[in-house]
């Protein structure tokens, strides 16, 4: 009963906030609705028993990706009339995308009614480990059966990260950075001199 109530609550909020993400006039509101959708999606994952995925969804998407998203959108200088100006031009493309997505959804529904997709192999190697927690089950699969795919994904991410750094990095000569080591290593006798200038002579430094 409680699970059912929770499920319908999460599901309704996901769909409602998903719709509002598209409908909201203000991009910042859109991002906030998207965050709400992510969060409730995580709730659905918990209900399905995939607590590890749920936590990752919150940590990665809500905690990091969406913050950066919000960060960028907040700083946009939004001109609403300009936003609407492109509407007619992009309308056919948008409709095309919508039709493709709808057909995919339809195909999925039809395929589902034809019978469930059976995961895993006959020897049971694909099945979750009985009596193991989520993390252990995922770890056991990732680091044994899918080790090379996992490593490949890691390499792809590494390349993407290095690429992003290389593309955005620029050497700036006009900034004066702080060298903490040098500051700490500096002693009073290196930085100051004690002079007794004669009257009317002054000091050359």
């Amino acid at each position: 009963m409680i699970q059912l109530i929770a499920f319908y609550l999460f599901a309704t909020v996901v769909i409602a906030s998903g719709t509002l993400t598209i409908m909201a006039r203000n991009p910042v509101h859109s991002v906030l609705w998207l965050i709400l959708a992510f969060f409730n999606g995580a709730g659905l994952m918990v209900l399905a028993g995939a607590e590890f995925i749920a936590m990752l969804l919150v940590i990665v998407y809500v905690g990091a990706v969406a913050v950066l998203f919000l960060f960028v959108v907040m700083m946009l200088d939004i001109d609403f009339s300009e936003l609407r100006a492109g509407f007619i031009k992009n309308f056919p493309l948008g409709m095309l995308l919508a039709i493709v997505l709808f057909v995919e959804l339809f195909v999925g529904l039809v395929a589902r009614s034809a019978g469930h997709l059976v995961l895993g192999k006959a020897d049971g190697s694909g099945a979750p480990l009985a009596g193991k927690s989520n993390i252990e089950a995922i770890g056991a699969l990732l680091y044994s059966r899918y080790l090379f795919l996992f490593e490949a994904a890691g390499i792809v991410l590494l390349v993407a990260m290095i690429g992003a750094i290389v593309l955005t990095h620029r050497q700036r000569s006009d900034t004066r950075g702080q060298n903490v080591g040098r500051q700490i290593a500096r002693r009073p006798d290196e930085a100051t001199v004690n002079v007794k200038p004669e009257v009317g002579k002054g000091v050359t430094l």
Binding site: A42, F52, M55, I59, V62, G63, A64, N134
Partner: peptide, 19 residues
């Protein structure tokens, strides 16, 4: 089982109040 991840997830939400 994912207690520590839960703490991480919740603490990452804290930024939204400020932002």
């Amino acid at each position: 089982n994912v207690g520590l991840l839960y703490v991480l997830a919740i603490s990452s939400l804290g930024v939204y109040g400020t932002v």
